[in-house]
Design a protein around this nucleic acid. Structure first.
Length: 420
RNA sequence: GCGGGUGUAGCUCAAGGGUAGAGCACUGGACUGUGGCUCCAGGGGUUGGGGGUUCGAAACCCCUCACUCGCCCCA
């Protein structure tokens, strides 16, 4: 009988009105705080040329290899729904020569990202991030500033406790030496590693350290640490970041195994994790990407950024914001004459800035009163044909049940006085 | 891509081969034009879909779809 049901595609959620208070609190907190820290909002496209992500994130990353929503445009050009925000932000930075306006550009963005992963708790195919990028300075103070910004953001929302994991991935100069050393080490243990890790020895040895399997973790426990292969510049940067964190009193945990999944990271890499989210416990992550701007065709420009997962953060803070009353005044009508007057009346009230509601289908007075009660209005206007004949309406105070007759011509100013 | 779990009313869940139920929500009545509390009544289901076993299936078997949790990976 009924037409086939169409439902939202897998891993994609509707965010219903009942959930919006949490989202609005999060987003307005972010906007206020990011603005305070000197970051300006940018809106960037939800889809881009596929090549941007392939070049920006690294062609062999999991995200690029198997998680992107990629499709041909009508002219055959390959497009991709953005799996993250940094690449697009950098593309915009380059395209609009933002470095000419100021040596340092600090941006933030809010919006949906898309990855074709198997959904589970805290992981969706369309999810939302707030991201920030500071482009144009290699100063470790910016790394520190972003960590402080995240810390303050989580505090403002009452999300606690969170743990900050910190590592340095070195730069393009010191990483090859470490890579070789790690590779040599892994070769000696290869037979004990899981299949995926054996493959990673060649493709991306750093990622072996990040493997969650106990066997792999045990075998790599005494693997060489990246931090002992850092060149003087990277060591200096890492030390400065840590000193800065100490100066502002922000606690962190060194995690030599922390490896990000995207190839553009250099030097500082970090993650904020929280308890109680199931397997997906990372709520924000980021790091420095000193080679990315140049890699995407811009001038050599250092940068640092992060993204935080809105859905995951929202899952952590009490969404007990009671729904506010959705109207100030309800107009109940009885009879055809009254019904004909109601659209004019609600319009006059709304023009006066009063949130007015009515029963469009004119049920029984009882059902209209019930709805007025449910809406939480302070006053209900009862407009029946009897009142119309007298040129008045009844105004009922829902709390005291007191009712007064008010001339129709006086109704709007009367209610305006009652509900400021 | 690979595993486990779950699909019954709008929602949360019962019924474990023998007439599909409750609570909440919704609608109406008690109170001919007056909300919350109480009581009464009512509407609403091809038990996710398809096939099989059986006199008889929501239940047992197979397939499929969806959701969900986990692996991989990530925010």
């Amino acid at each position: 009988m009924s037409a086939p049901k169409i439902q939202a595609i897998r891993g994609v959620k509707d965010i219903l009105p009942g959930e919006m208070p949490s989202w609005q609190v999060l987003e307005s907190t972010a906007r206020t705080l990011f603005d305070t820290f000197g970051y300006a909002e940018i809106k960037i496209p939800i889809f881009e040329a596929t090549e941007l992500f392939a070049r920006g994130l690294g062609a062999t990353t999991d995200v690029v290899e198997k998680e992107m929503y990629t499709f041909p445009d009508l002219d055959g050009k390959s497009l991709t729904l953005r799996p993250e925000g940094t690449a697009g932000a950098i593309r915009a930075y380059i395209e609009h020569h933002l470095w000419t306006e100021s040596p340092l550009t600090k941006l933030y963005y809010v919006g949906p990202m898309f990855r074709h992963e198997r959904p589970q708790a805290g992981r969706f195919r369309q999810f939302h991030q707030v991201g920030a990028e500071a482009i144009g300075s290699a100063s470790p103070l910016l790394d520190v500033e972003q960590l402080v910004l995240l810390d303050r953001f989580f505090r403002a929302l009452g999300v606690a406790p969170v743990t900050l994991l910190l590592n340095s991935l070195g730069c393009l100069l010191c990483r090859p030496a470490y890579r070789d050393a790690l590779k040599d080490f892994l070769m000696t243990r290869a037979s004990g590693l899981c299949e995926a890790c054996q493959r990673r020895i060649e493709t991306n040895p750093l990622r072996v350290l990040d493997c969650k399997r106990e066997e792999c973790r045990a075998l790599t426990r005494d693997a060489p640490a990246i931090t002992s292969y850092l060149g003087p510049e990277c060591v200096g940067h890492f030390d400065a970041v840590r000193a800065g964190l100490d100066d502002v009193g922000l606690a962190y945990t060194l995690e030599p195994r922390l490896v990000r999944g995207l190839d553009y990271y250099t030097k500082t890499a970090f993650e904020f994790t929280a308890e109680g989210l199931g397997a997906q416990n990372t709520i924000a992550a980021g790091g420095r990407y000193d080679g990315l701007v140049e890699g995407l065709g811009g001038p050599p420009t250092p940068g640092v950024g992060f993204a935080l997962g809105i859905e995951r953060v929202i899952a952590l803070f009490t969404k007990g914001n009671p729904a506010s009353p959705s109207a100030d005044v309800f107009i109940a009508t009885l009879g055809d004459h009254a019904k004909r007057r109601v659209i004019g009346l609600v319009t006059a009230l709304r023009d006066a800035g009063i949130r007015a509601e009515t029963d469009y289908d004119q049920g029984s007075l009882k059902s209209q009163m019930r709805r007025a009660d449910k809406l939480g209005v302070r006053h209900t206007v009862i407009l029946g044909d009897d009142e119309i004949a007298k040129g008045t309406a009844v105004v009922r105070d829902m709390a005291t049940k007191a009712q007064t007759d008010v001339a129709l011509s006086e109704l709007v100013p009367h209610l305006r006085r009652l509900s400021p």
